[in-house]
Amino acid sequence: MLETHIDQTLTAFFAGDRRAAARLMTAVENGGPAAEAVLEALYPKLTGAPRLGVTGPPGVGKSTLVDALARHHRGLDRRVGVVAVDPTSPFTGGAVLGDRVRMNDLATDPGVFIRSMATRGSLGGLARTSKEVVDVLEAFGHDLLIIETVGVGQTEMDIAGTADTTVVVLSPESGDSIQAMKAGLMEAADVLVVNKADRPGADQMVRTLEADLHMRPAADWTPPVIRTVASSGDGLADLTAAVDAHHRYLTGSGDLERRRHARVRVEILAVLRDRLWRRAQRDLTDHVPGWTEKVLAGEATPYTAARAMLAALIDDDPEDDE
């Protein structure tokens, strides 16, 4: 996006234009200087609206649950922003993003904005820029942000680092297949949900999860295990109550402050890393072949090469960064 376009789009965005919001999300997702300009302009508009992460293995009914949660909050006249992340194929770079299918009732609700994202080479369940896209939704005035990702036991901490409250969803069918991923899922969870609780095996699963939770070291917050049938709405009231309770706990205990503090710290480091890397790529890439030759010829080590290049980078005038 060109700079003139960015200004126009930002103006439209602040006037409440949905098309502009969508375009800013694209700019943010595509990264680069445009993304930074956008995020900087939006930063003062961030409201601190609650962020809910929903994760769990494929097929447990996450999208149906997100749909039901969003409808619940719409009933309370809250505006809801949803970011749904699905994996990019490592072979083709393409992706099929199908989470909207289960959110058809929200498709034309002006108080809801749904954005699908592909992970685009990011290793975690989140896309690299999911958090930033959520920022755009937050700055657009949404009262609740929901981030939905596939979680298979390794990547949940990503979402836990982005959301205030992380809901881990399982279903009776997940049964044995989740053993391997259980540790990761349980660690990330602030609230555990057994969805499709009308199916055989649900009771067993709830008992196992509760037993596992008792094994954890004592903490101020013990994740409750909630049974839901998202397709019929059963258990949703319990779930929203649990999420609210967790939010109260976070604010009351100061944990929310700590989490957000940590998040800002991570964010600063990420921006810094991103900038340094971009600058290194711009200024130093040309020097790499020369140093490579020297290392191969035994005239230098990779460490002396890196030290020399870093010194050259820091000596540069920071003003010509962009």
């Binding site: 097929g59 149906t64 299918v101 289960r102 397709s231 019929s232």
Partner: peptide
Amino acid sequence: YGEYVEPI
């Protein structure tokens, strides 16, 4: 009965 939504 409600309405059905299929898996994708």
